[in-house]
């Protein structure tokens, strides 16, 4: 499909054009060096050149808290609240976060397709943007170059003086209607290099992780880990949740709410009676890494980590998923060599 040139000076007008059609969510600066997706109010507040947002756009499809049921305690009845579709454009999404959404699509469609997720997800249009990898990004190692357009309707490739705007789907082209842009004749600049890498592809990681099940690395990392669950919280492909009932102060009604949960928390596997099935922090470290590179990956052939670097960048104990995986690769190679 077509490629247009969007000069920097026209970006605000382009965002306003998107706003005239749909709700637009885009990265905004929050505090000194943090960024977050938020609904756009003023186009000039949007930041398209940013390292990473605190949370991915997952929060719009799988909200951190959400009501699954409302109930009436007097009548002992319940109802499912209607979920509103998001008629929205997500602007300025990095390629790894788009891939993360595609992975969530798999999780919420496979087996028992979930209405709440699908209702919000359906109709969402995505405008991707290229980025310059910092010291935490490693999406190139999991098959996602910085300029990867998979899953996007439009993509903004940074180039001299602005962006090469690539239209990728009819939905994306539709967004451009009424906003004339010159064609982008020049080629695309090469995607920026990564500074961090997992040494081997997923096909080999399958064996590396199987081999590393009893590695000392789990215990070593667990000694640093405080089981705070931040890595789960910021991960764009974590989707585990807990469900709790909340009762209104009148004790006549309430709601059943789900909220994000994390497998690093000790209570995650606790059953009534007190048994905890992943009692040791090392067990929980391994579970998270295996969730990202083995369990779903063995079925789909793809890593379930998108290389955003959030878990490492925000870890309160300095634990790096890349270091863990590469340590396992080295141990594996040393034994197999």
């Amino acid at each position: 499909m077509a490629r247009f040139y969007l000069e920097k000076g026209k970006v605000a007008a382009f965002i306003a054009h998107l706003q005239s059609q749909k709700t637009v969510y885009a990265p905004h600066r929050k505090g000194r060096n943090a960024f977050a997706f938020a609904p756009v109010e003023r186009p000039e507040d949007v930041v398209l050149d940013y390292p990473r947002t605190v949370s991915s756009i997952k929060k719009y499809f799988l909200p951190a808290r959400e009501e699954l049921l409302s109930f009436n305690l007097v009548e002992n009845t319940c109802a499912q609240p209607a979920v509103a579709p998001l008629d929205a454009v997500f602007l300025g999404v990095h390629s790894y976060d788009v891939h993360a959404v595609l992975k969530l699509d798999h999780n919420f469609v496979a087996g028992n397709p979930e209405r709440n997720y699908l209702t919000r997800r359906q109709g969402a249009l995505i405008v991707g943007v290229g980025f310059t990898p910092d010291r935490f990004h490693f999406s190139g190692s999991v098959g996602i170059p910085a300029g990867d357009t998979t899953g996007c309707d439009l993509f903004l490739h940074p180039c001299e003086g602005g962006y090469a705007l690539e239209a990728l789907t009819p939905g994306g082209e539709g967004l451009l209607a009424g906003f004339p842009l010159p064609a982008h004749a020049a080629g695309l600049p090469a995607a920026a290099p990564f500074h961090q890498h997992i040494y081997v592809p997923q096909a080999k990681l399958k064996d590396v992780l199987a081999h590393g099940y009893d590695s000392e690395v789990w215990e070593e990392e667990a000694e640093k880990c405080t089981s705070c669950g931040t890595c789960n919280l910021v991960c764009p492909t974590c989707y585990c949740f807990d469900v709790e009932d909340a009762v209104d102060i009148t004790v006549t009604r309430g709601s059943r709410e789900r909220h994000w949960d994390g497998c690093l928390l000790r209570s995650f596997t606790e059953v009534a009676g007190g048994e905890v099935f992943r009692e040791e922090p090392a067990d929980r470290q391994r579970h998270r890494v295996f969730r990202k590179f083995k369990y779903i990956s063995d079925e789909t052939g793809e890593p379930w980590c998108v290389g955003c670097g959030r878990c490492t960048a925000s870890c309160t104990a300095g634990i790096s998923i890349v270091s863990i995986v590469n340590r396992l690769v080295n141990d594996y190679d040393a034994v197999k060599a």
């Binding site: 595609l102 699509d105 979930e114 209405r115 699908l118 359906q122 059943r256």
Partner: peptide
């Protein structure tokens, strides 16, 4: 990850 066709919300069951 290749993009997958999303099924319509109407085709889902009342899971919860």
């Amino acid at each position: 990850m290749t993009k997958r066709e999303l099924i319509t919300p109407a085709a889902t069951k009342d899971l919860y």
